[in-house]
Amino acid sequence: MRGRVGESLVVLLAIILMAACAKPSTQVVLMPDANGRVGSLEVRNAQGRQHLDQARQSVQVVGKDQGPGLPEVLSEARIRVDFGSALAAQPKPPLHFLIQFETGSTTLTQGSKPVIGEILQAIRERLPLDVSVVGHTDTSGSDDLNNTLARQRAEAVAKLLVEAGADPTILEISSHGKAVPLIPTGDQVAEPRNRRVEVTVR
């Protein structure tokens, strides 16, 4: 399992259309992600732009005829007032499961076999409407052959999930080819860890 959300940027964004204020306005607040890491944002319109790269840094735009104002760092308490409800409604982060295969085959490695049961458990708990079953390749060899194998592997995993009791209508099988490596490499690099199927339960 891999927490991609942990790598992601958390952005908190709001518009406050105040009844008392004639002009529409927008406030944008950059928040640290689940790992505490802080990404970056650009807020722009026709009049200008501002870059945000600090935790709880905020910028306000009032009307289309003015550019974004100067950034300021907001207190957590102030953020709670405006954004508490939106934050409380955040879905649980998706669950990621990694399945690996014997070289060149659609046979799961011994270590990956128990993952099927873990996925079933997650499906029972979350009752997802869509579960992605995605084959990935490394950058070695021909794209066509790699994609075919990645897709066959994804189909093999989907079959195991259905046999174990998953509803086939929620499974979405695809191949992302070499576009989303687990371990970034150059082109034409054999990297067994990148030849995998990832299952995402949302």
Binding site: L9, V11, L13, I15, K23, P24, S25, T26, V28, G39, L41, E42, V43, R44, N45, V61, V62, G63, K64, P68
Partner: peptide, 8 residues
């Protein structure tokens, strides 16, 4: 938004 664009 009506007055700005956020690039992520």
């Amino acid at each position: 938004t009506p007055v700005a664009t956020v690039g992520v």
